[in-house]
Design a protein around this nucleic acid. Structure first.
Lengths: 214, 214, 214, 214
DNA sequence: GATGAATGAGGCTTCATTCAT
DNA sequence: GATGAATGAAGCCTCATTCAT
């Protein structure tokens, strides 16, 4: 806001790119990719329409870059958090961390959860390496548990990772859509269900299943 | 299928509406809703552009109607199939039936899986009652199992249903995207993984969890 | 309503043509020519869309035929009424008769007044002979008065006729637009001004002008 | 007129808006509002189709804006001209000025005269304040004459104003339609009648009426 | 004659992208 | 680098008209 765009220095440039990404995150989250207008993102970012094309090749590239940026954050946080816990706890930690991210950064979650899917259509060519990284990290946690004998090895770890992601993703989506308000203030946090409790349920289902243990 | 389109009578009307829905299913599955052109759907259906608007209010209505039609099919098949099995088997049957549908009707699955999500954006107002029905049916299966003492009751049945759907949905998506070809002939069935085996894994995860049982 | 369309006899045909014209009058008056839909006229007339094309070449022809029909009524009534009065009274009678028609048949007046003008655009080629007849009748009344020495002959009768028509037309338009309700029941006649009194004013202006006579 | 379009500065913006209005005036005058194509206006104005929507909300807004612009010109000229004449002459001056405008700016007159009427249909909601201003100015001239004892006060000034406008409008219309050529060069001015002489006739009718004065 | 489902040309409008300043 | 006015391709949808029944 108070930064003079005419100021010298390279902070301005990275600044502007980030501001555009932040704006895109909010706009995409609110309207979806296709219903979002480049002009609106520009306005939200406080830059001219054309400026966006100085930092991104086109609208698609803006979405892809946003994915990469946010997935990188997610992966970084997960990697750092997992490293601070014992292998035996890592599956639970993964789940809690992921759903905590959803709660704390709903706009980012909306983009990753909702748009990733629709975009998988027009982005089949785009490999989406960060998401692969995410899945490999999760599969790694499972595989480690299997190797340690803690987890059953019947289900291949990559398949289990995929299933767990589906589960997390659906809970995230249900939570995101359960509240119509875009208000993110604390008092409006009382959405229809508590995603933290949901994390425990997710953990319970994944580790023990639904079947009653004698 | 067995209706002769040259038959006299008003079967023609339903016929044409169905042809348009079938065409929309294929086109939406191939390109996604937004990238699909009404004109292309008309061409695929073998009708004039304007004809579509005799049966559907607009492009959005076409998508919504397609959802309702296909979800209705899914719900009908599930309801019929569940009725033919003992309560104790119904969760497994549900899973197998659903993933079997995905395998046999990939275009419908693509629309339901991929587009449902993106559209949840512009269809938040649209209640999507068939999907609610689907979730309630699944929750009913879980609740019955809990009531019978077969399943643990820690997780509320509706939440469990949601998680199971997420799991199924993700497996469906992974399977659908794992094969670039739209070819559905038998020899191209050898996609990257076998969705029937996946059904067993899904069932295993849901019932027993990942944790190793002594 | 109670006429069976399958009844033999030629009354049915003329009947249907008239019903279509009546419907067109109402719809054109309500929405204007361009904003009126052929399908709506058909519905209002209680016939199928295609039926209109059995009686009229196209939408334009429907408007032109409507003009001719209504102008013929107007001309007939004027001719009959004028014949019943002395030449010296005919100018006043003409004015009163015309504005009385406007009051009693507002839908017809709306079409003649409003649509005639806009249509003069796309109907320059269409000679509009009935309107010429109307003007000649009015010019005849003026010319007779001039010949009898009752009226001043400075202004050529055809020009005077045109001016008088403009005056009448504007009063008709002002009256028509002054009441938003389409209600034509007696008690709703109290529009913003009384067109009968206006007729007297019109007569006064035309015969004596605005200038104060000593 | 004298503005160089190649001049730098933001004169370009107003310039372009005016060019679009001028083009719309010509096209609407030639084909009428409904038969006019936005694309043709754009071509006539030498801009892209989309450019029109930078200055006007839609086609309707273009027509309304055109009205306001031209009526403003008319009102301005009338106000300025009336101010330069004695009250006793103002009615005649008004008439001459108005019909002179019609002769000098036939396209504008065509739009105001022909389209105003048809548009009264779809613009009943649009208050059309400039036209009200015009009528009030004319009514003021009449009222002043009445107050000065020059004009008879039997007819309320607003009604008289309306009648006078009807008269002027009809003369304008007759003159405009009397010449099929769109050519406005001096030598094609010899239309079927001379509108300046008509102005005298209009003045005569309005002030003295048709009745012969002894 | 009557029907009304079907047609398909064509218009208004949007919006990603460019480029002169 | 930054701007934002301008572009123009392209899509959704309407609706007058036709024609098989």
């Amino acid at each position: 806001m108070t930064v003079h765009s005419s100021e010298p220095g390279r902070a301005g440039a990275g600044d502007k790119r980030d501001r555009i990404l932040d704006a895109a995150e909010r706009i995409f989250a609110e309207h979806g990719f296709f219903a979002s207008r480049v002009a609106e993102i520009a306005r939200e970012a406080g830059v001219a329409d054309g400026t966006i094309y100085l930092y991104f090749k086109n609208k698609d590239d803006l979405l892809i870059s946003l994915f990469e940026s946010r997935m990188e954050r997610v992966n970084d946080l997960l990697a750092r958090t997992l490293a601070q816990h014992e292998p035996v706890d890592r599956l639970k930690v993964f789940i809690h961390t992921y759903l905590g991210l959803v709660r704390d950064q709903p706009a980012a979650a909306e983009v990753l959860t909702v748009e990733l899917r629709q975009s998988s259509k027009f982005m089949k060519q785009y490999a989406n390496p960060r998401f692969g990284e995410f899945l490999r990290m999760l599969a790694g946690v499972v595989a480690d548990g299997q190797a340690a004998g803690q987890l059953d090895a019947t289900i291949p770890a990559p398949v289990a990772a995929r299933m767990i992601f589906g589960l997390l993703d659906e809970m995230a989506l249900a939570w995101l859509l359960s509240d119509k308000t875009t208000d993110t203030s604390p008092q409006s946090r009382d959405k229809k269900f508590d995603i933290v409790r949901a994390a425990d349920w997710v953990g319970a289902l994944i580790t023990q299943g639904l079947e009653r243990r004698s």
